[in-house]
């Protein structure tokens, strides 16, 4: 946390920012009322910091690339497909997988706030939550993609999917050339978070 330079003449603890104090007040109030339990809060933070993240989504995509029956189920009923792999729960109630093709590239945004498939990708990055991305992804998706280093040929259309609290999208990126015969684990290592939001492409072996 950024704070003023340490001052040894200052006898008291550094005062946290106003929002940090307001969160402490909320926490004290809600624990006092018995509505939340401190151990549960620690567990939630630990889960999202260490256990749930884009590695889950990468596993799903790598399997879809390797197993046609799974890919068909994923595209038909993603919630059921990923539940089979143990990925369900908060903000994963209704996931829809959209597949990139040679002619259409998919890009995901939440114009309302920051809806996102938590069980597969974890907590969204700062840029996904920014007004700039939320507004511009719809208005000028090609320009936004270019800023992420993604330049698509003119014949590839860009389609933007707007997430809501009811539907959260996962992009199934295209499998790169040169990965024939690779294991699911090896494939998963190539797949980035941005590729599953649509702001990146999966690079093949160099």
């Amino acid at each position: 946390m950024p704070h003023d330079a340490h001052d040894h003449d200052q006898p008291h603890s550094l005062l946290p920012s106003d929002p940090a104090l307001r969160v402490k007040a909320l926490e004290t109030l809600l624990i006092g009322k018995g509505l939340v339990d401190p151990a549960t809060l620690d567990e939630i933070i630990d889960t999202y910091q260490t256990k749930i993240g884009p590695q889950n989504g990468a596993e799903v995509v790598a399997r879809a690339w390797s197993d046609d029956a799974f890919r068909d189920l994923l595209l038909k009923d993603a919630t059921a497909a990923v539940s089979q792999m143990g990925f369900y729960g908060r903000q994963g109630e209704h996931i829809v997988a959209v597949q990139n093709t040679d002619s259409v590239h998919k890009l995901v945004v939440c114009t309302l706030c920051s809806c996102y498939p938590w069980p597969l990708l974890g907590i969204p990055p700062g840029w996904y939550k920014s007004d700039a991305y939320r507004a511009r992804a719809v208005r000028e998706p090609r320009k936004v993609l270019a800023e992420f280093g993604v330049t698509l040929p003119d014949h590839v259309a860009v389609r933007v999917w707007d997430s809501t609290s009811e539907i959260r999208y996962l992009v199934v990126p295209q499998r790169p050339a040169g990965t024939e015969g690779w294991s699911v684990d090896a494939l998963a290592k190539l797949i980035t978070r941005d590729a599953m939001i649509g702001t990146g492409l999966v690079a093949g072996p160099s």
Binding site: P16, P19, A20, L26, L41, I45, Q49, I123
Partner: peptide, 13 residues
């Protein structure tokens, strides 16, 4: 994942 500790606490609450 969280830029500031208070972001994480607020999210968890």
């Amino acid at each position: 994942v969280f830029e500031q500790p208070w972001h994480a606490q607020l999210f968890a609450l």
